[in-house]
């Protein structure tokens, strides 16, 4: 009985504020937009019965999403931006995680703290910091002009390049931490053995270090890829009108066009796309846990 009182509150809370809202999204995605408050039909009423209610639902919004190329372009471009920025984050993050794992043990806690600190700092502020750097008269351009590397300012803000920089910057800790914890556990004698057996340092790195840090790499990549796919703040502050991302489309569909059914349909499809990487991520985590035991 006591157990029941422990289970019931969080369970009920999540059912009511996580599962039910989601069912509502699915339901509204099958409804039609209307000039009403709330702006969709049909509304459920017991009087008409469940049968007629379900009869009025249809997949019209989903067919609409396939017909208007804005939407599938936004999905594709989100996938592209998420993939490219995940790879870039890995390229920046791996050497850092590697350097941290190889640093002396007195230094490691400080380095860890330096990685974690930005993670606690407001996401919005970290994205905002780049607006002043990347703009036409920003610091980067001032510096490059001063150094004589360029003659005319580069246009970076409001392009996809700025979005990539923003994503790499804000999601870097998520990439470094799992790779670092994998590399920290790695037994140094394995690398020495490989070198003794005639591997060059680079081959040893490639054949021993990389495979043994694989779970960390995979975990880091998913931790970056999954949230970037639905990212809203970065493309809307750093991106331009052509950096289409689905999170931004959903936002605009809801707040500017006030088309709730279409916004809901966009959300449902985004979630369906996300299921694949989420399942793969879960499997990777499970494998890692089994390996540890």
């Amino acid at each position: 009985m006591r157990r029941f009182f422990l289970i019931a509150p969080p369970f009920a809370w999540l059912l009511l504020l996580f599962l039910v809202p989601f069912v509502i999204v699915v339901k509204i995605s099958l409804s039609d937009a209307a000039l009403a408050i709330p702006p969709y039909v049909p509304k459920f009423s017991w009087a008409e019965g469940i049968g007629t209610y379900f009869g009025q639902l249809d997949f019209e919004n989903f067919t609409f999403l396939t017909e208007d190329d804005l939407y599938w372009k936004a999905y594709l471009s989100s996938l592209k931006i998420a993939t490219v920025s995940t790879i870039l984050t890995l390229l920046v993050g791996y050497p850092m995680a590697y350097g941290m794992a190889r640093a002396s043990s007195e230094w490691r806690p400080t380095l860890m703290m330096l990685v974690i600190l930005p993670f606690w700092t407001s996401f919005l502020i970290r994205v905002y910091a780049w607006m002043g750097i990347l703009s036409n008269e920003g610091f980067l351009n001032q510096f490059l002009l001063w150094a004589g590397i360029i003659d005319t300012p580069l246009i970076i803000l409001n392009t996809n390049t700025a979005v990539y920089i923003g994503i790499v910057y804000t999601y870097l800790p998520f990439m470094i931490l799992p790779i670092f914890s994998a590399l920290e556990r790695l037994d140094g004698s394995l690398i020495e053995a490989a070198e003794d057996l005639g591997c060059s340092r680079l081959t040893a790195f490639w054949l021993v270090t990389i495979p043994l840090s694989k779970t960390g790499i995979i975990a880091g990549c998913f931790l970056v890829f999954i949230p970037t796919l639905g990212e809203f703040v970065i493309p809307s502050l750093l991106g331009g009108s052509n950096s289409l991302m689905i999170g931004k489309v959903l936002w605009e569909e809801f707040f500017s066009n006030r088309d709730w059914p279409v916004a809901s349909a966009v959300a449902v499809i985004l979630l369906l796309i996300l299921i694949i990487p989420i399942v793969l991520f879960q499997r990777n985590q499970q494998k890692q846990q089994e390996a540890e035991q």
Binding site: I24, V25, P38, I226, L229, G230, F232, L250, W260
Partner: peptide, 17 residues
Amino acid sequence: VMPEVITGLSLLLLFIG
């Protein structure tokens, strides 16, 4: 792992509902 836009949208629809 849920994108914030989806969490936000679904909760709003609940509150209005």
